[in-house]
């Protein structure tokens, strides 16, 4: 693997909602096979940043390059082609509740790639196995599963099309510490098995340390610090220190109003 190969490259990405600047010029690069975790408080623009890279939101300015290809403003078949490189684990799971678990996991292969249903079911059950779920779970509906199981199914769905890039939106939020660690292990394993590039957003430091090679911190729409995960305790940045130690006192003030 060529470590110098840049998979995702963002330059000067800006996004506002009304008068509020949510992203104020974001520059970041992620090499192929690397796992970047973006940390930051609630409402700091983490989710918006992911959605801009995914193309769910369109930034007002800046460039988002995937494998060197500019993706801001592309549509139709080009967008679908780029989208095939992505897998996304949504915060709430975002499983389709009208479909069975296996149909959820097989959704991408069947609907987007035209894999016949029996073959797609095999893929789905294999992916469910990869996240530690027995085949019986495949016949259930998402509403019948616990939160941790839903996260696993969602992870299985995210990896079903063997994406080159996987996004994790707060993968451990709302889980107990043990289940959170199980999910962390699965994330590390799945990303490694696929050889994928990963971007995760979280405010769970235990999770961040475990799943990342590099960490970037976002504050008020800007990336204020980035570096290797091992260096995070020696950042000498008061914002980063306050965040990773979870102190109420410090340069970061609580944001009272939602964006």
């Amino acid at each position: 693997m060529n470590a110098a190969l840049t998979k995702i490259s963002l330059k000067g990405v800006r996004k506002s909602f009304g008068p509020k600047k949510v992203l104020d010029g974001i520059d970041v690069e992620v090499d192929a096979g690397q796992s970047l975790v973006i940390i930051g408080g609630s409402g700091s623009g983490k989710s918006v940043l992911l959605k801009c890279i995914l193309g769910l939101l369109r930034p007002e300015a800046g460039s988002v390059r995937i494998d060197g290809e500019e993706t801001v403003g592309i549509n139709g078949t080009d967008r679908a082609r780029v989208m095939k490189k992505f897998g996304m684990l949504f915060q709430g799971g975002a499983l389709f509740d009208s479909l069975r678990v296996w149909q959820n996991v097989a959704f991408g292969p069947i609907q987007a790639d035209g894999v016949p249903a029996p073959k797609a079911k095999e893929i789905a059950l294999a992916k469910l196995g990869a996240v530690g779920l027995p085949p019986e779970v495949g016949e259930l509906y998402p509403a019948e599963l616990s939160g941790g199981m839903q996260k696993r199914v969602s992870l299985a769905r995210a990896i079903a099309r063997e994406p080159e890039i996987i996004f994790f939106d707060e993968p451990t939020t709302g889980l107990d510490p043990i289940m959170a660690d199980v999910i962390n292990d699965l994330i590390v394993k799945c990303v490694r098995d696929l050889g994928a590039t990963a971007i995760s957003i979280t405010h769970d430091m235990a999770s961040a340390r475990k799943i990342s090679d590099r960490v970037a911190m976002i504050y008020e729409g800007k990336l204020i610090w980035q570096g290797a995960t091992a260096e995070i305790d020696q950042s000498n940045d008061p914002y980063v220190d306050q965040f990773i130690h979870g102190r109420a006192e410090g340069p970061i003030k609580m944001q009272v109003r939602k964006l």
């Binding site: 995914l54 193309g55 989208m83 095939k84 509740d97 609907q111 769905r157």
Partner: peptide
Amino acid sequence: TMRVTEQIDALTTLST
């Protein structure tokens, strides 16, 4: 409900 639980975004990420 699909919109507020991000299921519509999930559709898009599954190229649908």
